[in-house]
Simulated scan of single mutants.
Amino acid sequence: KICFTFAINCAKIFINMIRGPVRSRLPEKIVEAAQALVSEGYKEIVLTGIHLGLYGTDLRPQIDLSVPLRLLEDIQGLERIRLSSLDPAEITPEILELMATSNKICSHLHISLQSGSTKILQRMRRPYTAQEFLELVTRIRQAMPDVGLTSDIIVGFPGETEEDFECTMQVVKAAAFSRLHVFPYSPRPGTPAADFPEQVAAQVKEERSRRLISLGHRLALDFHRRHLGQQLSVLVEEEREEGLLVGYSDNYIRTRFSGDDKLVNEIVPVVVTSVAKDHVCGEQKQEFLTKKRKE
């Protein structure tokens, strides 16, 4: 199954298909799907699926996500490979090494944190502690210093105290995410958490959400400021914003700049000249001034 996204230059390939036991698409089928997209003009694909990092555990012999990634790297005309959301335990040293040395795999990871309180993580049945998450972030940044790290946070999970929430704020600061998605907890009938005691009041969840969203905006602005004067490789999308071309860098910075429509679906060098919390602006350069990542 292939699901197209809003951009003409990017498409999603589902590589494991359903909830429940993992069912992985064969590597050759993933390659076929990617080749078909490239022949239609796509420059970037996003690999996605339920528990993406468990890819291949159901195949015999077992393989992991690095197998299709290496095969996709060899496809002529495919410029970028982006990974969708991964759980912390699914980011292995092998995946990090491959990402750090690849010229095609985007320097961007979306890792689901959910909470910065180890107590709440245990109530959520998440298989990691807050400290283990931060240790993973350290390893990621050692491998890819300019990586874009994005994450999801659930605010107001049953039993979350103000102290627990402050732990989340501190972990988010320490992780220095480039973009943050914040969701207030809402009970789903039939789930254990819906019957937990100590449900958090709606107004408390709203207030905590505002505080965390505000922190996320500050962190995004900090990340963008780090790129002032630096060159980004921007894949240009079809729609303009305020008359400007717009696209994403490989580390997932939304970028606006002046340019001709003929640049749509091209990867363009852009030097950042100004920043905001949700995007940067820049000037197009005629050629790339810096090399890609490691050869």
Score class of each variant (00 low, 15 high):
residue 140 I to N: 07
residue 165 F to A: 03
residue 240 R to G: 04
residue 38 V to Y: 11
residue 187 P to H: 12
residue 191 T to D: 14
residue 243 G to A: 08
residue 279 H to S: 01
residue 197 P to G: 10
residue 49 G to W: 11
residue 144 M to I: 12
residue 168 T to V: 07
residue 208 R to E: 02
residue 101 T to G: 07
residue 227 H to D: 02
residue 39 S to Y: 00
residue 245 L to W: 06
residue 107 S to E: 10
residue 72 L to H: 08
residue 14 F to A: 15
residue 269 P to D: 01
residue 55 Y to W: 01
residue 85 S to C: 11
residue 217 H to E: 13
residue 220 A to K: 01
residue 129 T to H: 01
residue 193 A to Y: 14
residue 242 E to M: 01
residue 234 V to W: 00
residue 147 V to P: 08
residue 71 L to K: 08
residue 6 F to L: 15
residue 99 M to E: 03
residue 53 G to L: 09
residue 67 V to Y: 08
residue 168 T to Y: 07
residue 289 L to W: 08
residue 101 T to F: 04
residue 6 F to Q: 09
residue 2 I to F: 10
residue 134 L to T: 07
residue 90 E to T: 06
residue 33 A to Y: 10
residue 21 P to Y: 09
residue 149 L to E: 04
residue 140 I to A: 02
residue 180 L to Y: 09
residue 51 H to M: 00
residue 204 V to W: 09
residue 61 P to L: 11
residue 66 S to T: 15
residue 218 R to I: 02
residue 155 V to P: 07
residue 142 Q to D: 15
residue 272 V to T: 03
residue 13 I to L: 10
residue 70 R to C: 11
residue 78 L to W: 06
residue 154 I to S: 00
residue 205 K to H: 05
residue 268 V to H: 04
residue 265 N to W: 05
residue 20 G to C: 11
residue 237 E to V: 08
residue 17 M to A: 10
residue 61 P to I: 04
residue 142 Q to F: 10
residue 205 K to M: 04
residue 229 G to S: 06
residue 45 I to H: 06
residue 56 G to K: 04
residue 42 Y to V: 10
